[in-house]
Amino acid sequence: MTERPDNTRLHDWLHETVGETPDPVEGTQQVMSQVEETSQVGRWLPFPVFHRKARAKTSTATDTAEYQPSPIPAANGHTPTVIGRTQSMLSPAKAITAGALVFALGGVLLIAQPFDQQSAVPGAETEAIAPIWVTGTVTFAPSCSGPDSEMVGDVRRDWSNECSPQTWTATDPRLTGEVAFRWNSDIYQTDAGTVEVNTSASYLRNDDGGWVCSSSPLWKGSGPSTTEAVTGDNAKCVGEGGYEGLSALLAREKGPGPGYSAEFVGLIFSGDFPPLPEAPAAE
């Protein structure tokens, strides 16, 4: 019996050795006894991030880099990436065009408005604003799609998770709108259960501009899937379009529970997040 097992033999052997199947009624009852404790919709979404429409495949390498979610500062010691802002602000063509438009349309008056009126004015990002506190509610998407999965060694790699659209309703209209929420996960089986390292991106669009937010929450679970957020969720957001030049930091308590919405609190401010501190000099 050392010859290579042919397919027929494998097929026959597999069918023969399934053995007696348990009573499906009993099995179903055992499943149903746990269903009540199992919330549907599955994961409570990590902090929603704002989303833009998918870019065409013709995007240049620069475009791709520009729109990658920014990593959490100090994560893995990498320099943080600022999304889609630095290039736009420093673009001479954009600056000239914007300047011409401002003068042609009387934009000088817009810029001269008091700070408290600038918050909802597209284009006002060229002027520094005082930080503004924001509170709001995330209403989760009614349906989700994905993920695609692959086992890489002992790690389950999930990608193309998406729950969209979420709805953000905030005290500041700039953080109000529909959000596409996506995330990728690496899922590890440990002695303490399932652990998921997660990179999430949310893309918000409204009539005046958009935001790209990213976060990396940690999830855990007792089964093959994770169901509980271990950490709270802080999302770093970078403004785009009419909100270019603005940043936001949004915080949500961990795990919104089996409900369908969650509260958040945050701050909108001008400019970038502080840079990553330099590493100490080698001794």
Partner: peptide, 14 residues
């Protein structure tokens, strides 16, 4: 099998 069905319940909206 039971865990798979619980996951099906959890994620069936996807």
């Amino acid at each position: 099998t039971q865990q798979a069905f619980l996951d099906i319940w959890r994620y069936i909206r996807r």
